[in-house]
Nucleic acid binder design. Sequence first.
RNA 1: GCUGACGUAGCUCAAUUGGCAGAGCAGCUGAUUUGUAAUCAGCAGGUUAGGGGUUCGAUUCCCCUCGUCAGCUCCA
Length: 646
Amino acid sequence: MTTVRLTLPDGSHREVPRGGTARQVAESIGPGLARAALAARVNGEIRDLDRPIDSDASLAILTERDSEALELLRHSSAHVLATAVRELFPNAGIGFGPPIEDGFYYDFQVDRPFTPEDLERLEAKMAEVAARDFPFVREVVDRLEARRRFADDPLKLERIAELGDHETITVYTDGPFVDLCRGPHIPRTGRLKHFKLLHAAGAYWRGDEKRQMLQRIYGTAWFKKEDLDAYLHRLEEARKRDHRVLGKQLDLFSIQEVVGPGLIFWHPKGAMVKWLLTRAVEDDNLRSGYDLVYTPNITREELFKISGHLPLYEANQYPAMAAGHEEAEDVRYRVKPMNCPMHALIYKGQQRSYRDLPVRLSEVANVYRNERSGVLHGLLRVRGLSMDDAHIFCTPDQVEDEIFLCLDQVDRLVRQTFGFELDFEVSTRPPERLGDEATWDRAEVTLQRALERKNIPFRIDAGGGAFYGPKIDIKFRDSIGRLWQGPTIQLDFNLPDRFELEYTGPDNKPHRPAMIHRALYGTLERFTGNLIEHFAGAFPVWLAPEQVRVIPISDAQAEASGQLADRLKQAGFRVHVDARNETLNYRIREGEVHKVPYMAVIGQREAESDSLALRVRGAGKKQEVMTVDAFVERLGQEVRSRSMVP
RNA sequence: GCUGACGUAGCUCAAUUGGCAGAGCAGCUGAUUUGUAAUCAGCAGGUUAGGGGUUCGAUUCCCCUCGUCAGCUCCA
């Protein structure tokens, strides 16, 4: 009898008969490991514990301590969910059921959508399936057999038809349920103990909105009860930092039903944050060699025909408006969804020499996009956007340097200033696009090479580019982990053609410039929303709408408090006095709840000594008494350096 | 846009099988003059998102519209 030699992670070796399993190895090491074993990593590939091993290999036994095991648990949980669904809804069609971050989902084709009561029943049924401790059994089948087994399930048949001829088709059985699945799985359903079904929602089959809508059930699963509880608690906590909740509590912004969804009212405090952010980016732009421009909010729609926005972007634009009084009736206007055509016109307005390039035009501009109603989301997805937009016109061989400049700005203004972790993605050509293939090839390569030269890791989002060019997208996470695109750097070799932009080269001949669209924050709306969640509403002092709240202990210090506030205002700080007829405790609490960075408490001692008792946000009772001059010095330093305090 | 859930005072939430719409906070008035996270009392606050229907009677049941939330699709 032949054996295979297995190398364990500690470098030791085990021999098992050819066709032996990882489970046997685990058993030979010890009963504890045998009980804990969930799967195996064989030559780097995760496999079922009971899958035979046919040749010498490296082998690691996976237990719940391995992160891969959690993914397996969730994938198996999805199968258990499907098992439960088939028990209660025998006719349900079975779609996809993958593990996802923190959980899993499964898509079903059912006669009616799932109700919250259905989810309760399904959860109970899942517990039952888990308790019966069915083994997950892997089986290799040929195409004919696969078709036969899933003959009554068109969704599965569609997937079988897509599998290549050389691909191994496997099915997994747990108790009464059989699924077409690549695996691997945990050994038995009994390992599933701590799970919860979270919600149901519609989801298009194959992610295609032209196809039928299936019903998706989301759930979460963990090895330990503490982990499940901690996760559910984390979801609750996240709700508290939701920018829509904080926006109301801190009176930053509102959205008014009479005016319409996706249109933001910036209240005084939110407007201050937005203004400070705008100043910061304009400041950086001017220092980085950009010029500032302002362009119209509406235009004859001819402009968007030239640019190609019509008809390619028309679904996202507001419909045309009738002509002004003195113009012919067939002249129609559009509100602008983007600034690029406007900036292209400024470029085109004069003869440009290669000596003038790059021309960098920046504008924090309001644009309006008719986003579909279901996608709107607080500040993170709106219809009226303030873009910190800019367009760079340069020679083709300046492109890479200009992209470096943009990446440096993003690093300085976004990563360093706010401590955001950045997540880079290159989005390539979409199905609906302008321009020829060679141009797209060149543009996509340019972007990737720029990131590689900067040693910035990135992912590829195939087909995610704009209609006029590929882009580097940079994403943020919101309070519950959803990704939102912030900064974007987009290459465009198409608009220069459509507007026939030119510069005169050293050869005294006309050349076509390249064009880069770029936004550092993305939009002020989305960026501010992300910032609110990032700081949980507690802005660093340079960004806080109210930096200092002066609190007299009693009426006797009201005048001294007013004078202190005036001095601080003269020094350029944002200050309010809270001399309301309330207890000191009440006013301190208000200041903390409203997340004011500093409270300056003025009692008799302070009033007499030109000093203040400083209470720092979040630091509790620990107060510091200092002179007014010392405080002004400290505050000024913190604001100038945009330091992340308190 | 699609699927589902939801919409009660400025905010957070109650209201039994369809039977007079309520509380806390915020607001206003008064008392209190406070040394670091909610002083006390009184007053006021509503076309129950909007419209239609069923009913003796609708916050409650049905239909339509608008909006919000979650997900899908789309996107900064």
